[in-house]
């Protein structure tokens, strides 16, 4: 029975990601994951680090939308003729 309930580290980290992304696990998955994490320090560490990575990613995407990201060196700049070309397409009624 115990052997049947024990997850491998691969499975435990996979369930960690499933839980992080979907926000929920089946009852059995939840129990199995909790049991594994209680006994396995490495997978506990993985879960903490992965959760933190998730938060950084979310915040970076959000801050970037608000243009707070600092770029190393030159920020990507629109080509000089971009506006001209776009305005021409808009005027041609390409989008309408």
């Amino acid at each position: 029975m115990m052997k049947y309930l024990m997850l491998s580290c691969r499975e435990a980290t996979r369930l960690t990601e499933k839980k992080l992304t979907s926000g929920r696990l089946s009852l059995l998955d939840n129990i199995q994951l909790a049991m594994h994490l209680r006994m396995c320090e490495r997978c506990r560490r993985y879960a903490q680090q992965s959760t933190a990575i998730e938060k950084v990613l979310e915040r970076q995407l959000k801050e970037q939308e608000e243009n707070e990201v600092n770029y190393e060196g030159e920020p990507p700049v629109l080509p000089n003729d971009f506006r001209e070309r776009l305005l021409r397409r808009l005027q041609q009624g390409d989008g309408i």
Partner: peptide
């Protein structure tokens, strides 16, 4: 990252991080 049986490979074992990424934002 994992052996055939699903255990962490030695070279892939998660190490302890001195700081959390969230504090490094």
């Amino acid at each position: 990252y994992f052996t055939e049986s699903g255990a962490w490979r030695t070279e892939a074992l998660p190490a302890k991080w001195d700081d959390s990424p969230e504090n490094l934002l």
